[in-house]
Design a protein around this nucleic acid. Structure first.
Length: 302
DNA sequence: CGTCTTTGACCGGCGC
DNA sequence: GCGCCGGTCAAAGACG
């Protein structure tokens, strides 16, 4: 999971190394190994590849379980929020780093406590809190406050949390309780959209970005096509909270857990995931090149 | 040239 | 009333 954390591209990422043998490649190697019994070296290599494949399969299984667990947590949290009760974790608590305890406590507590309390539970890279705070005018209308923590590269200086929406930065400020600057964003997709977002590194862990959303979007979620990173060759299904991007370090599967619509464990999700993975892998020249090289290696006297 | 980001200035709320 | 501080504005610069 460390690789996913290092990636920092999204709350949940699975990094698949192109260089590792695929299932097809391994069976291919096995077939070739059995066919080339006269070549003990090839047999040896086939065993190594098979061992690698077993290892990767095991890792994939663990990651799949982790995804399922994270998704289940997300669903549970959403249903909890649906009851209109604020998250117990969002309850104010004294922050050791909050120098502004005398006042502005609302803000400093809001952003300082969430990560450590939750990251250990999920062992993951995503966290979201919802707080519905009453407005100052005392009306019955409530402003939804949602907080999301994202693991990023500590050396990454841009305060960007990819959530599918388009944001326009309108300010940046260094706050008293946190040495790292806080960035202020407005929703740029719809000018009338009241949602605001604050993004700041965690005071305790600089590799954690804390994004605080205030309000709710008054427009549908923009198409994900707009946010596909450069170099991404996979198409994104609108109904599946998943994307596959390919960069220099290999293909990356990104699960967008901020969306409500996807069903990670459902057959259609799995089908879409497999299709996207296959599409991404086969369209990646690195992968096809590596595969071709591996096949060439196995072909005797070629 | 239009759009976006940066950044210093300004405003308003809150505690003392 | 004053000062502190978070939030916002808006001009200037960067960028494609």
């Amino acid at each position: 999971m460390d690789s996913a954390r290092r990636d920092g591209c999204s709350p949940v990422c699975l990094d698949l190394s192109v260089g590792l043998p695929s299932a097809r490649g391994t069976s291919l190697a096995r077939d070739m190994g059995s066919g080339g019994a006269a070549n003990p070296m090839a047999n040896e290599e086939a065993k190594i590849l098979e061992a690698k494949f077993t290892q990767v399969s095991e890792e994939n299984r663990r990651l799949t379980e982790m995804i399922a667990y994270l998704y289940a947590s997300q669903i549970a949290r959403q249903s909890f929020e649906g009851e209109g009760s604020p998250s117990p974790r969002a309850a104010p608590a004294a922050s050791p780093t909050s120098l502004a305890g005398k006042k502005r406590g609302r803000e400093s507590m809001e952003t300082s406590n969430s990560w450590d309390a939750n990251s250990n539970k999920t062992g993951g890279t995503v966290d979201a809190d919802h707080v519905e705070s009453p407005p100052s005018d005392g009306s019955c209308q409530r402003i939804k406050v949602k907080r999301i923590c994202t693991r990023i590269d500590p050396s990454d200086t841009n305060l960007v949390v990819k959530d599918g929406y388009q944001w326009r930065k309108y300010g940046q400020k260094v706050t008293r309780d946190n040495p790292s600057p806080r960035a202020y964003f407005r929703c740029a997709f719809a000018p009338s959209c009241p949602v605001k977002k604050k993004v700041q590194r965690s005071a305790e862990d600089s590799s954690v970005l804390v994004a605080t959303y205030e309000g709710e979007h008054n427009h549908p979620h923009p198409t994900h096509a707009n946010e596909l990173p450069a170099g991404c060759t996979a198409t994104r299904s609108g109904s599946v909270p998943c994307s596959i991007s390919i960069n220099s370090s290999g293909p990356t599967i990104t699960l967008d857990l901020t969306k409500n619509g996807g069903v990670v464990a459902s057959p259609e999700f799995r089908t879409a995931l497999v299709e996207q993975m296959a599409s991404a892998l086969t369209s990646d020249p690195k992968f096809t090149g590596a595969l071709a090289a591996a096949i060439l290696q196995k072909l005797p006297d070629y």
